[in-house]
Design a binder for these strands. Structure first.
Lengths: 193, 193
DNA sequence: ATACTCATGTAAGCTGTTACATGATTCT
DNA sequence: AGAATCATGTAACAGCTTACATGAGTAT
């Protein structure tokens, strides 16, 4: 059996945690929960569910509503094992970030101060929007789903931190204050934390 | 002219900021600087440089070392303009995150407490490794490159925050402490920031 | 009646990585 | 002499998004 993708584990985990689901339901669940750190589109979900079925990690049951097709998937014992192995195994988990706004910050030297502040403001706006999304999107704490809640708190904390960082930088730039560390004797310690 | 990709702007910006460079030099620069928030592989860099050349945003000059081929690129005026437009324009900049370890945290409910702590520890280790990478990889502050330095500080601050968050969660889990917020009346405000 | 949600899927295309191929130059 | 670095590029493939196609059920 080939290595399972991260997205495969996402589907396995979702069905494990939420109980038997259709592809459509999973799609919606992802949109209000893992989307912020692991997205998945329908073009990925449906084929992957089929693959997991033929690999024996999911079972499919056809349960049409009227004449509308509907495939409900459940995790098999083999699937449970695969999920547990993934959760406890430590093989270089994917961490990938593409932050175009931060790239703009990186290149902001040639801009005027006003333009620089705008770049940082745009970065803050983006993270504020994500905070909003997280606040609205994810359902409140439910017993047995402690870690759903914990990773939700992570999202709030993380983007909240970025927003604060941007605010600080904005006011430093606005007041012509060279960000603190740049002149100190040990710049790293001073501002990094 | 088609929309320029983020990676195109990366190359434009790098050459703008560092002066005329070869593809190879850019590749190395990316490895020690933007890689943490905008990666680029040789398989992308070389073709993209050619594309930017034929779009008139870069000029290429052949400067072999001995008989070894060597193409040095510079930013044209048109390229400067494109870069400035990108920096000051605000068209939904890419923000994409794939954090497999956080996905594991999300699904950690079914594990034993020991296993749960291991998952968080692995997450912390990953971010500590990135902190190390950032500390070592990026050159110290140089005049005229304030924003290179600022985004470096961002990396330290960001991953430092995650490491602290993990430490807190690890001790909460180890001591059977239900993460604070879960019982309070307003859980969100309590732990989110 | 109309619009929205439920529900599944495919095809085209873009982005990006990995691995390979090639070979010269420089350092130890 | 041998290893590491400089330097450019391509080909195959993996992963993912977007848009489309299709149509039934449900709510207003």
């Amino acid at each position: 059996m080939t290595e399972l993708s991260g997205t495969a584990h996402l589907l396995l985990g979702m069905i494990r945690v939420k109980g038997r689901r259709t592809g459509y339901e999973i799609k919606r669940l992802v949109e209000v929960s893992t989307r912020f750190f692991w997205a998945a589109s329908p073009g990925q979900i449906y084929p992957e569910l089929r693959r997991l079925e033929s690999a024996g990690l999911l079972t499919r049951s056809e349960e049409p509503h009227g004449s509308r097709a509907r495939n409900v998937y459940s995790v098999t014992e083999q699937g449970e094992r695969a999920l547990h192995d993934w959760l406890t195994g430590g093989s270089a988990p994917t961490f990938e970030l593409r932050n175009e706004q931060l790239l703009k910050v990186f290149f902001a030297d040639a801009l005027t101060t006003e333009e620089q502040i705008d770049v940082v403001r745009a970065m803050r706006a983006q993270h504020e929007a994500m905070l909003d999304g997280i606040r609205k999107a994810t359902p409140p704490y439910r017993p047995g789903r402690k870690f759903g809640y914990i990773s939700w708190l992570y999202g709030l904390g993380h983007h909240g931190w970025v927003v604060d960082w941007c605010k600080q930088l904005e006011s430093d730039l606005a007041e012509g204050r060279i960000p603190h560390a740049l002149e100190g004797s040990d710049p790293v310690a001073a501002r990094a934390r």
